[in-house]
């Protein structure tokens, strides 16, 4: 009962303080809101960069052209050699004969007409596979190139490679930005609450003099930080949900071209909102505790 009364009092006092020091609360809420909006943007951006990277990695395949006239035994040996490489996704490995390739070319295509005219199919049989780690794609391609009966090895080559590594840099930059912004939010809330606490230092010193335990003194400030953090996260959450949904609909789910596909809002906005709520609340509490601690020394 005693604990319930103390907690109840802490929550009541925190609520009163938020309204009593309304202008300061508003300053704290808005600074939190602004930083959390940027945090939200960075999170959504990171999600999309991740998804684009994954998409590119998925479509990136290695094509191995087998020399003409290679018999079946040698083709099988080559297949085993390719599968032996750790970076090759074994399930993705596919063997296509010249006839398979010819069949896969649409009838309307000029190439098909040319092929139809020729007596002999000039196409080479191929192995197509995906790699586990795109960064090692050129090593893998070079290794395969050295195998017997390999005429040529082709993959997305430098453009795809550069794009993937560039996206990775962007993703890392986003993660660093999110972490930095969380610190900024913590700093802002901590400072705003410091001002609130400064105006209440008299009250704190009286509480200490009359024998109030430090935990009980901290409690209302902890709850106040939590309230401010949560209130500060509401606007960013609303903007995240509706803003991203609008953006997704507006762009039709694609950015610049069909290749850059945006992540479906339903899969990310709620997770991002939850992250914002937790970050806002936690950072509010930690910032508040940090601010009150200096008045509880001695």
């Amino acid at each position: 009962m005693k604990i319930i009364r103390i907690i109840g009092r802490g929550i009541k006092d925190a609520g009163k303080s938020v309204f009593r020091n309304f202008s300061l609360s508003l300053a704290s809420i808005s600074s939190t809101a602004i930083t959390l909006i940027i945090v939200s943007l960075a999170i959504i951006f990171t999600y999309n960069v991740n998804s684009i990277t994954k998409h590119i990695e998925d479509v990136l395949t290695v094509i191995v052209y087998v020399e003409k006239g290679t018999d079946e035994t040698d083709v099988n040996t080559l297949k085993e050699h390719i599968l032996y490489n750790d970076n090759v996704v074994s399930e993705s490995l596919e063997y296509k004969t010249p006839e398979d390739i010819k069949a896969s070319i649409p009838d309307s295509s000029d190439l098909k007409n040319v092929l139809n005219i020729l007596d002999e199919n000039p196409l080479k049989s191929t192995f197509v596979f995906k790699v586990k780690d795109v960064k090692k794609i050129s090593d893998t391609a070079n290794e395969v190139r050295g195998f017997d009966h390999v005429a040529e090895v082709k993959y997305g080559e430098s453009v795809a490679n550069k794009l993937v590594s560039m996206l990775e840099v962007i993703r890392n930059a986003c993660v660093i930005t999110v972490i930095a912004l969380i610190f900024v939010t913590w700093f802002l809330i901590s400072n705003t609450i410091k001002i609130t606490i400064f105006s209440r230092r008299n009250e704190i010193s009286i509480m200490r003099l009359v024998g109030t335990s430090n935990t009980v003194i901290k409690l209302p400030f902890l709850v106040e930080g939590l309230i401010l953090g949560i209130l500060g996260s509401l606007i960013p959450i609303t903007l995240t949900i509706f803003g991203y949904m609008f953006f997704y609909d507006f762009t039709g789910g694609h950015l610049f071209s069909e290749i850059i596909e945006l992540v479906n809002p339903n899969t990310i906005v709620y997770t991002t909102s939850l992250v914002l709520l937790i970050v806002g609340g936690l950072v509010g509490m930690v910032g508040s505790l940090n601010a009150v601690r200096r008045y509880l020394k001695i």
């Binding site: 009962m1 005693k2 604990i3 009364r5 103390i6 009092r9 009286i206 509480m207 009359v210 024998g211 109030t212 009980v216 003194i217």
Partner: peptide, 10 residues
């Protein structure tokens, strides 16, 4: 009453 309230008394 302030000190007693912070002690959590009834």
């Amino acid at each position: 009453a302030y000190p007693l309230e912070t002690y959590g008394l009834d």
